[in-house]
Computed example of a mutant assay.
Amino acid sequence: MKKLRNHLIGVDQGYVSLFSDFEDGGEMWTGEGQREVRRSVTFSEPFSAAPVVHVGLALWDIDHGANQRADLQADGVTADGFDLVFRTWGDTRVARLHATWLAIGELTSEDQWQVD
């Protein structure tokens, strides 16, 4: 559990269109095997340390003729941002995918003293 010690708690959120491979015959729609899409997300302002990040599917347009396989994660979370990563594998065909994210963490305060 992450315990927040600061009265300045920041919440940032966003919506990312990860890909739309149906229109242009992209690999997520036509490919087989392991596939991955990674998008860099930058917070609207930095947190004082890496926040907790929650990600979710906002739109998932997938072919019904195969198994539906998906892995969506926040990777490499820092105080400034993270990578939003979607993976699929096997014969799963994904036409397009949109994701949402929510970050909650401590913000720095002008009243905080930094002692080295």
Rank of each mutant, 00 (worst) to 15 (best):
L102W: 02
E27Y: 13
V16D: 04
T78A: 10
R87G: 04
R38W: 00
K2T: 15
T88G: 08
W60G: 04
S17C: 07
E23C: 00
F47I: 10
E110A: 13
G33I: 05
H98S: 14
A103C: 14
E23I: 09
Q13E: 15
A50P: 15
D80C: 08
Q114N: 12
G81T: 01
S17A: 13
L18C: 02
D75Y: 03
H54P: 03
L72A: 02
V16Q: 10
V55G: 04
G14S: 06
D12S: 12
S20T: 12
W113V: 15
F43Q: 12
Q13C: 08
A103M: 12
Y15A: 10
E36Y: 01
D83P: 09
G56Y: 15
S48M: 00
A74G: 06
L97T: 01
M28W: 12
F22P: 00
D75W: 02
M1Y: 05
F47L: 02
T100Y: 10
R93K: 15
D24G: 15
H54A: 14
G14N: 08
V52F: 06
D63N: 14
V11Q: 10
L4P: 00
V37N: 11
W89L: 05
I62H: 03
R93D: 07
A74S: 04
D61L: 07
S44G: 14
G56H: 11
G105K: 03
G31H: 11
K3I: 06
G33D: 06
S20M: 12
S17Y: 07
D80M: 10
E106W: 07
L57W: 15
N6C: 07
W89G: 09
S109N: 08
Q73V: 10
M28C: 05
I62A: 08
D83Y: 14
L59H: 01
I9K: 11
Y15K: 13
F47W: 05
W101R: 03
E23D: 13
N67H: 11
E110R: 12
L57C: 15
G65T: 05
L107N: 11
V52A: 07
R35P: 13
D83M: 14
S20F: 14
N6Q: 06
H7G: 06
E45G: 05
A70S: 06
F82K: 00
G105D: 04
A58G: 05
E45F: 03
A70W: 01
H98R: 14
G26Y: 05
N67I: 09
H98N: 14
L84D: 08
N67P: 08
P51N: 05
H7Y: 01
A49V: 15
N6W: 04
G33P: 14
P51Q: 02
V52E: 15
L97S: 00
G76K: 09
A99D: 02
D12K: 13
G26M: 07
T100C: 05
E45I: 04
G81I: 02
E106H: 09
R87T: 07
D12H: 13
F82E: 04
A95G: 04
G25N: 12
L57I: 15
T92L: 02
A58H: 08
G10W: 01
S109A: 06
V11N: 11
D80A: 14
E45K: 11
F22A: 09
E27A: 06
R39C: 07
Q13T: 13
V85E: 01
V52H: 08
D63Q: 11
R96C: 07
R87C: 01
H64P: 09
G90S: 14
T100N: 09
L18P: 04
S109E: 04
Y15N: 12
A50W: 08
